[in-house]
Amino acid sequence: MSNALLEVDSLHVEVDDKPILKGLGIAVQAGEVHAVMGPNGAGKSTLANVLAGRPGYAVTSGAMIFDGVDLADRLPEERALLGLFLAFQYPVEIPGLSNMEFLKAAIDARAKHAGLDEPSAADFIKRAREAAGRVGLSADFLRRGVNEGFSGGEKKRNEILQMLLLQPRLAVLDETDSGLDIDALQVVAAGINAFRSANNAVLLVTHYQRLLNYVVPDRVHVLADGRIVRSGDHTLAEQLEQKGYGWLAS
């Protein structure tokens, strides 16, 4: 277990002084896809956000070890540069700042961190266009403001595009499937499947089973009242689909 890519141990997290995660543990190895499922309010998004270091989420005890590094007290950008990526549930709009400038800054930060040269503008644009094509965003999206005036589906496609471009070690996808029509869902799933490799891992946080029809997880965890209450293989997701969460709650 000590060589897990992500190891979360007895994690307690409070938001506005209210305990949300109450001793959560999970370990993800490189090459794996894990799904964390659970009813609304169980703490799924809290897990995603606390991993990424979102302000306002206070770790009161427990540990998050990512690739051998303790994430406690690490700034959000440091976690990102270590290779931790969060696909947001509600991606924010940044008017006027173009996707191009934004993505270039993110890629340049990564290159600098790795001690590499920044990619040339031409090289970057080529890669960005290619990624845009893969998630079904038209090339002119690069000139538009970050998520500015994007539909819900476009925002989610943009998250997957960033994952493809930034090539993190661990991608945490927070309800990326919610609010998507079937076409967009398939594009998102294809993106995740293309991303999967023996060197990286994916943590899917979701309320519904339907994304798991396209992205088959190695492990499924049920999160209820701030703890993992059951883990199993992908058949657990199917059981949840049929029976709901009620039978696990007690």
Partner: peptide, 20 residues
């Protein structure tokens, strides 16, 4: 936070947002 999550430090992020 979005900028930081993508690896851009806070100071640079503020400048980028204001520039936008």
């Amino acid at each position: 936070f979005l900028c930081q999550q993508r690896g851009i430090d806070a100071e640079k992020a503020v400048a980028m947002i204001v520039n936008g």
